[in-house]
Amino acid sequence: MITLHALKYSRANRILWLLADLGQPCNRIDYDRTKSLRAPEALKRVHPLGKSPVIEDEGEMIAESATILRYLAAKYADNSHTPPQGTPAYWQHEALLDYVEASFAEVALQAILPAFGGEPVPETARSALDVHLDYITQLIGDGPLLFGNRAMLADIQMSYIIALLARLDLLNDHPVIATYWDALQEQPGYIAATQARGPMAPPADTERK
């Protein structure tokens, strides 16, 4: 059985979402955040960088959400969370799956971090974020999700950053993405993950110090 090291309010919910969709249990080891919302030192005994999520399976340790999602899809022979292989949509999906953390997250965090600390978001950060949110809006198209009605790995990967932006009211000028976030929250795997480990983003009464 997969062992999942799951930090509260983290990307670990992505993995719980896919496992729920696949009907696969896991041995979940939970870690609470510190009062300053940082990862605890205990995670550094699992991964040198203190990462979450991390999974262990058959003696192997695997980090990075996109890699874990791909690994689980391959392990359980799942092809329902990607477009058909070899199609243009498949390669667009693969690019989006990597885009979330390789490009989007870095830009989004430049707005998320000051907003979460109760500070104004710098105009340069907001403008850069708007470029990416406009790009994602085009990708959603008729929606409700990136590739239609069914959540793909890229949707699961996208959900964490979108959750943080929604929590901080940074989607107010992007109604298509706000609607996309509503659709993500209706997915059975999302519901199961949040029921098991709590919300992706810290609740509104959580203070960052």
Results as ranks from 00 to 15, higher is better:
196 A>I: 06
82 T>S: 13
171 L>V: 02
135 Y>G: 02
208 R>S: 11
146 L>P: 04
30 D>I: 08
36 S>R: 11
187 Q>P: 04
192 A>V: 06
144 P>M: 07
74 A>D: 11
99 Y>A: 03
77 A>P: 02
109 L>H: 10
74 A>R: 13
133 L>W: 01
125 A>K: 06
203 P>C: 02
135 Y>D: 10
162 I>Q: 00
32 D>E: 13
156 I>E: 00
164 L>K: 09
93 H>K: 03
19 L>K: 10
19 L>F: 07
18 L>F: 13
92 Q>Y: 10
87 T>N: 08
39 A>L: 07
184 L>M: 10
203 P>M: 03
104 F>V: 01
103 S>Y: 14
57 D>W: 10
181 W>I: 02
153 L>Q: 05
34 T>W: 04
4 L>D: 05
86 G>A: 04
125 A>H: 14
1 M>P: 01
99 Y>K: 07
71 Y>R: 04
130 D>R: 15
120 P>N: 00
113 L>W: 14
91 W>A: 05
150 R>S: 11
96 L>M: 09
176 V>L: 12
114 P>F: 01
170 L>Y: 08
47 H>Y: 02
199 P>S: 12
68 I>T: 05
189 G>C: 07
110 Q>R: 15
77 A>M: 12
163 A>K: 01
132 H>K: 14
17 W>T: 00
166 A>L: 11
107 V>D: 06
130 D>A: 14
142 D>G: 02
141 G>N: 01
187 Q>I: 06
72 L>Y: 11
42 A>C: 01
84 P>L: 11
87 T>K: 04
116 F>A: 14
112 I>V: 11
200 M>Q: 11
53 P>K: 01
89 A>V: 03
196 A>V: 00
191 I>M: 08
48 P>V: 04
82 T>I: 11
20 A>D: 07
158 M>I: 02
22 L>V: 09
204 A>T: 15
18 L>P: 00
